[in-house]
Design a protein around this nucleic acid. Structure first.
Lengths: 136, 136
DNA sequence: TCTTGACCTTACCATTATGGGAAGGTCTAT
DNA sequence: ATAGACCTTCCCATAATGGTAAGGTCAAGA
């Protein structure tokens, strides 16, 4: 299987497959006489694993750790759970931050009359000219 | 005021102040005879505006648009509200994605026994060997 | 006055993960 | 043989921020 077919089969672009190889996330595949990379179903399986982990928001570094645990027959599943739990905590922190932003912005938009008058509560807030953001 | 003092007064690092100048977000300040940048309260005010917008998750490009509207006395506040509303929508999309990831991961962690047994539902899911992720 | 330390200047490099493109080699079907 | 669809490597770009290095400047104290 050439890299294009492996890309189609795994959902990882050829560009990314080469990149993952370059940074050492996956091992260099064998090559044909004309220097084409050759992949088999094992490699595609690994690539699918990587794609799934990335979809779940794991960084490439975390993905590498999960991959190592996946391929380690003597692993303790507790390690995997720890990585996942930390990742959940990081995601939830991020969500809370975004929700805080949305809350502030919704309040500002709610206060904005949206016509041609030159005063605008949103800009006033950004400029820090209002005493308070919250509290109607 | 030198750049360090402007940084302290605005909460924007000196590094970032120079960067904002370089990309044209703010205008080059005047210089002393020894080529030091000189800032006044107007510039600090602009920097605070930028910092607040960045804190609210606006990109630098969006921040530049808001800044232009802020400084445009003939602006329509509807334009500002539109930028903010689009930004809220983008943030909410991002939140939904993150929550979806968290939901899946929490389920997997819940299913994981976390001991030394070699089977691990989280890795199984990543590898795609389980028929379903959801549904106990 | 000289030195020291804190500040400033520019310029370059690194980060994260991904895409785009160029220049050139290869394979397959017509 | 030739066209078109592949493949190869190499370089560049993204968004926003931090770091570092080499060198100039300024203020205060010995």
């Amino acid at each position: 299987m050439n890299i294009g077919q492996a890309a189609d089969a795994s959902g990882v672009s050829a560009k990314m497959i080469r990149y993952y190889e370059q940074i050492g996330l996956i091992r260099p595949p064998s090559r044909t006489g004309s220097n084409y990379r050759v992949y088999g179903s094992d490699e595609v399986h690994v690539l699918r694993f990587i794609r799934r982990a990335r979809t779940l928001g794991f960084s490439i570094e975390e993905t590498g750790a999960l991959l190592a645990l996946w391929q380690d027959k003597t692993r303790a599943s507790g390690e995997v759970r720890d990585i996942a739990s930390e990742h959940i905590a990081a995601l939830e922190t991020k969500i809370a931050e975004l929700e805080s932003m949305v809350g502030t912005l919704k309040h500002l938009v709610h206060c904005c009359h949206g016509d041609n008058r030159p005063d605008c509560p949103i800009l006033d807030d950004l400029a820090g000219t209002t005493s308070k953001t919250k509290g109607h």
